[in-house]
């Protein structure tokens, strides 16, 4: 579904990604871990071209995103949901409008269809009663669940999560991970950058360790955590586990 070849990204003279090659199949749940500054978020943001790679290609459903025009990219992004660390809900709109804005303004749905779809998603994330509230009336965990619902309304083929629980109070992490687990069980293709090792172990179909701009190691969660190959990963795991 997503094929990454020789992906490089530099900011000025600082090279963040130094050549990433990987393939993400439909239905996979790839969990990306690694130390801060390793390039894992940059990698994720290159997948939907929020960051433009310096070299290499990202092939999504058969077409190379690095060769696309801006216009085509926006079309592709409709199919790639993204959830941010800091939610980025639209504070001036009600929750309902947050969910329906994009599909309606992009002409993908009528207002009625979007409303219907929004209500289904709000029920799914357990926040149907918040439809007429504004984002700043919600807790962090609720905001992130809304952000996930907002992406789901677009009916994406893949969901990208950029540290979705890192900005949350500890007691709210669970509700967001629970929802992500539910999504995973329904077969959603997911790429998740996170520090939640428990989630990686339990939900991931593959765990990827990015260190210093390269994939240092990737494996099934069982092998990844039980028998890490590289000393760098062993050192990292001993610090976080």
């Amino acid at each position: 579904m997503i094929e990454v070849k020789g992906l490089k990204k530099s900011f000025g003279s600082l090279e963040i990604l130094k050549g990433i090659d990987t393939t993400i199949e439909k239905g996979e749940k790839v969990v990306v871990i690694g130390p801060s500054g390793s390039g894992k978020s940059t990698f994720l943001r290159c997948l939907n071209m929020l960051e433009k790679p310096t070299a290499g290609s990202v092939i999504f459903e058969g077409s190379d995103l690095t060769k696309m025009s801006e216009k085509q990219l926006y079309k592709v992004r409709e199919k790639m949901g993204m959830v941010f660390q800091h939610f980025h809900l639209f504070p001036h709109l009600t929750i309902r409008k947050n969910l329906t804005l994009a599909p309606v303004k992009l002409g993908l749905m009528t207002k009625e269809q979007a409303n219907e779809s929004a209500e289904i998603m709000l029920k799914k994330v357990g926040l149907y009663n918040k439809a007429e509230s504004y984002p700043n009336m919600l807790s962090g965990g609720q905001k992130q669940r809304i952000a996930i619902a907002r992406s789901l309304v677009m009916n994406p083929d893949v969901m990208l999560f950029d540290e979705p629980t890192s900005a949350l109070d500890p007691e709210m992490v669970g509700e967001v991970l629970e929802l992500m687990k539910q999504l995973a069980n329904e077969g959603m293709t997911m790429v998740v950058v996170t520090h939640e090792m428990g989630f990686a172990r339990e939900v991931g179909s593959r765990v990827m360790f990015i260190d210093n701009g390269v994939i240092a190691e990737e494996n099934t969660p069982e092998k990844f955590f039980a028998a890490p190959d590289s000393p760098r990963l062993r050192a990292f795991l001993s610090k976080v586990l």
Binding site: N48, L50, E70, R77, E78, F84, F90, A102, L106
Partner: peptide
């Protein structure tokens, strides 16, 4: 801006 872009809004 990023949230808008990630939803396909130009």
């Amino acid at each position: 801006f990023e949230a808008g872009a990630s939803l396909g809004m130009n």
